[in-house]
Design a protein around this nucleic acid. Structure first.
Lengths: 350, 350
DNA sequence: AAAAAATATGCAATCGGTTTCATTTTTTAA
DNA sequence: TTAAAAAATGAAACCGATTGCATATTTTTT
């Protein structure tokens, strides 16, 4: 390894002290303008590169922000990450990203690594089997801000960024009812996750609001994978009476349901109307296009990161911030997969 | 901020020197087994957390690996990242991830940040408008390993992990020809990128190999976005003679072409046969299913990370490694979007 | 021109783990 | 029992930037 250039080398080369060099490089006001210029020139000439470790060691922060997501390769998560990266890099922060693969064990390991790496803050979307959030205690204790996004803990926690999943599912279900569905099934993921638990509530509330009795077998628990579509549909086929509406908790799974339905010659939306979640590209490509809840992944990422950086700045200046749950707007996008006859639409609009 | 526990505190609490504590904690063989036990116990009791900065400062590495991708939210890139994360976390490395958003300027900025953050190594998939790779010079000079994946520089460079894009496009085009296409168009991205330049070569070579003259207007340059499908197809419609085969350089764009074609009542594959790239979920959901080149994103990520870590270990022990270009296998997946009549399939298989 | 105030710079300690080299203790060999 | 070798431990320097406090220099005020 080559000799590293340090502020001591710069100092020596132009006859100033390391102190002044350090101050000049960080643009401290107590250094004469002219001196600064000299120092910057010398630094450039020598090819100086600041040693972050030394700086971090002294200043006790890293400008690194940790992000833990269930899976990196999901359209929603990667959009959220993209939003985070954008905001973070503008503010001069790096992102350290890891995935839990939906496993609590790995989430705990990741949390530890993040803690040991001394990230300045943490953004987390919880794994499927996470119930308690004890593993974040070290962060809470040291007052390192943690913000949850999308998948947030049930318990009382610091801060979160989500959408109103209950309302979203309510509206989606209400829309199906409006389109004349009488017997609506709902495929969703692990109910330990707030996202799915809330959607279930919304779905049930919508049914109750028009006096439809809620049938437990209509709620289908699945992993929402691509392969799950086939399973869900084959389950549907055996139900009596067969459901005439299906609300699936993500688009790629909804799309695979659609494929499975078409394979069986079942007409969508006429025989079964179908709603997805997320407004992934896929929802606009399949035929019929999927009605879906547009889920602002990029924006959730942006907002979560903005809030986190706000907290960091606030902590810096000793301001204590309130707990807060930020609820971003969603949007029910109505497309062909649910649009039956115009007459069944009470408002007459659309 | 609370008082941090240091090795000095541990040392004092049990009457050993910081030296021994340090050695014990890193499991140095020169410390008595019994002493180690005592030290570990004391560390646990005091709630000791190693200070990575101090350690890094002294040892001169971070266990952080930088990754620069064009976009975080692309199915291919996020799969590659998932593969990288898996390998890295197993080996005890963190990932610092940033996106260039296809801009050279941002790529340069990211490269600088990565350098300043002192990542131990770098994995890069180049931005669309990157031609020279001077901005990686600081890494080369300091012998910090850089491995390019998927989108690699044209010039001579250290190490890369790719697929044989020329061959893939050749096979895809040959397949279209085999299905009876006489006039094949090819929609691709920025030709500065090796991926697309190579595919163009393969496409042309396939045409030449059966004596079809290559028509420049059949090559359509696009950003391969979802919206591009509509444009590509409207361009196709105005060509005379109208192409009967279309090779699109990614699946989501191919899917949007399919939608645009169907909207115009054009039969796929009968009137226009369609091939995509990547084997994204979407290729299995649209109707007809897309013939596509399966592109092992996850594996590319894994291999790239494995190679990088190998290099790090090799560097550590002073072994110099050769430049190397690793070419991973792809797979042409033939599906309904190109399957015309059985008779046109010479082999009769499939 | 002297005193006071403002500005500029430097000394030396500090952050906390690692490592070289020396010293002490224990074990083995003679 | 003593010398030699091996094992265990420690003192202190080191990595390189930051910063509280002190000092030196310049500018302003009287």
């Amino acid at each position: 390894m080559k000799k590293e250039i340090t502020i001591y080398d710069i100092a020596e080369s132009i006859g100033f002290s390391p102190t002044t060099v350090s101050r000049a490089l960080s643009n401290h006001p107590r250094v004469k303008e002219n001196t600064k210029i000299k120092i910057f020139e010398a630094a450039a000439k020598l090819g100086y590169q600041s040693n972050i470790f030394a700086s971090n060691l002294r200043r006790k922060h890293t400008f690194n922000i940790g992000v833990i997501v269930p899976r990196l390769n999901s359209p929603f998560q990667s959009s959220a990450l993209a939003g985070m990266e954008k905001v973070a890099s503008q503010a001069g922060y790096n992102l350290i990203i890891s995935q839990s693969l939906e496993s609590l064990t790995k989430e705990i390991a990741n949390t530890k690594t993040m803690f040991n790496s001394r990230v300045d803050g943490l953004l987390v979307s919880l794994a499927a089997d996470t119930e308690a959030i004890d593993h974040f205690e070290p962060f809470f204790k040291k007052e390192i801000p943690v913000i949850f996004f999308d998948r947030v803990p049930e318990q009382n926690y610091g801060m979160g960024v989500v959408i109103d999943n209950e309302k979203a599912a309510f509206e989606a279900t209400a829309h199906l009812i409006e389109q004349g569905c009488k017997n609506i099934a709902h495929a969703l993921g692990n109910l330990k996750i707030n996202v799915y638990a809330d959607r279930l509530k919304g779905y049930q509330r919508a049914l109750e609001s028009v006096g439809i009795r809620h049938v437990p077998q209509n709620v289908i628990l699945t992993d929402l994978s691509e392969e799950a579509g086939e399973k869900i549909v084959s389950q549907l086929m055996e139900m009596k009476p067969r459901p005439d509406g299906l609300l699936v908790s993500n688009d790629s799974c909804a799309a695979s349901c659609l494929v499975a339905l078409k394979k069986r010659g079942i007409m969508v939306p006429e025989e079964i109307a179908l709603v997805g979640f997320n407004n992934d590209v896929i929802s606009r490509m399949v035929e019929p296009n999927l009605t879906t809840v547009s889920y602002p992944g990029f924006q959730i990422g942006e907002v979560a990161m903005e809030k986190l950086i706000q907290k960091l700045v606030a902590n810096e200046s000793g301001i204590r911030q309130e707990k807060e749950l930020i609820i971003l707007p969603f949007n029910l996008l109505i497309r062909a997969s649910t649009l039956r006859t115009v007459s069944s639409n009470k408002t007459g609009k659309l």
